[in-house]
Design a protein around this nucleic acid. Structure first.
Lengths: 204, 204
DNA sequence: TTGCAATATTGCACTGAGTGCGATTAGCCT
DNA sequence: AGGCTAATCGCACTCAGTGCAATATTGCAA
């Protein structure tokens, strides 16, 4: 082992490349043929791996739409950690949620747009998205509780839930009848405006 | 057609009975063998139905855990409809959500307890539960928007989301480390207390 | 560089959910 | 009673996902 061993081994790099290839191939196929009409075997073939091997990269087909979902949680955690000494929980939480929305998504947001569309149309994808969201919410609540012990574990969870719920509620309406429901940037802006208003009672 | 034709035909009654039999059989089997280990074929056989016919009663295996989910929504809608002339949105919403929690669940809450346990342990069940919850939330938001036009469609949705989110957030914590996470009555009481506190800023 | 251990890849066979279709049955209505 | 409609069911099929065992690839140390 020399003085500078690569932090990521060849193995790891190769694995990461294959993973990306899978996501890219899936995006391509989903866009062209639709989600249900695309089989895992097709995706694997497009990424030049065996069908069986696919499941050592993703546990399920839906998971292709949500790579790196932990990045968003980490962004929120950082935002909470960076609070000022006089900040109150609601303000901190609001900044954390903004951080979640802002982390510029994958390459040019093409995957984000696809995800948005499939969340609206494919039940199994929506279900998975909601599960991921709940896990993220729980994790954020944990950080909030650590930052403000006086809230209590449950108080922090309820507060976080209220904020995330407000965002999600606005999102629901937006996604179902907005002309540009597929443009992540536009969606983000609209949601931000709507939630700022809905959460007003907490900031006064 | 005589003066008094049965409101529900024989056909409908039989169908309802079979449906209940399926739910009962499923509950029994899920409790005894676990969710994953129970096949649809077993459930169908226990209810004396062809396997193929099962899918004309329930679209998917998970749906066995959520019969009559629309009852809860209707209870909430009724609560909103029964508002007083001076009631403000938050108070009305809170009553509506209480109505949702109160509708005494299916027979002795045995199914409710099972559902609670499976939501915690089986991902696909949790996903379905979240989807149903979101649909219900959206529907309640619609009623709220109709009752308070000044809120606007999106404002109503955000507010509803915030309230439901607070409840759900508290529920998350409760379900993961409460000793009696399987007792629906206890859970309901605890959630009510937690949310009352978390939603306080709206009532002042 | 070579050889060994660990890990990744793959094929194969299998289970179980869910669907489409066509034949049969059973309830409904006149 | 008899035709009409809707429910039931068996059959064959697709596809997601898993367990297992064989093989190939990479990491590491001598």
């Amino acid at each position: 082992m020399g003085a500078y061993t690569a932090v990521v081994s060849l193995r790891d790099r190769k694995r990461a490349r294959t993973r990306s290839a899978l996501v890219a191939a899936a995006a391509e196929l989903f866009e062209r043929q639709g989600y249900e009409a695309t089989t895992v075997a097709q995706i694997a073939a497009a990424a030049e791996i065996g069908t069986r091997t696919f499941f050592s990269y993703f546990a399920a087909k839906e998971d292709l739409l949500f790579p790196e979902s932990d990045l968003r949680v980490r962004a929120a955690a950082d935002a909470i950690a960076a609070r000022g000494p006089d900040d109150q929980p609601p303000a901190v939480l609001l900044r954390a949620l903004r951080a979640v929305g802002e982390d510029s998504d994958d390459l040019s947001g093409r995957l984000a747009a696809l995800r948005l569309k499939l969340i609206r149309t494919v039940p199994v994808v929506r279900g998975r998205a909601l599960q991921i969201q709940m896990d993220a919410q729980r994790e954020i609540a944990r950080h909030l509780a650590a930052a403000f012990p006086e809230l209590g574990e449950m108080g922090a969870a309820a507060l976080t839930g209220a904020f995330v719920g407000a965002v999600t509620g606005a999102l629901q309406v937006l996604l179902e009848d907005s002309p540009d429901a597929d443009d992540p940037a536009a969606v983000q802006r609209a949601v931000q405006a709507a939630t700022d208003e809905a959460l007003a009672p907490w900031f006064r």
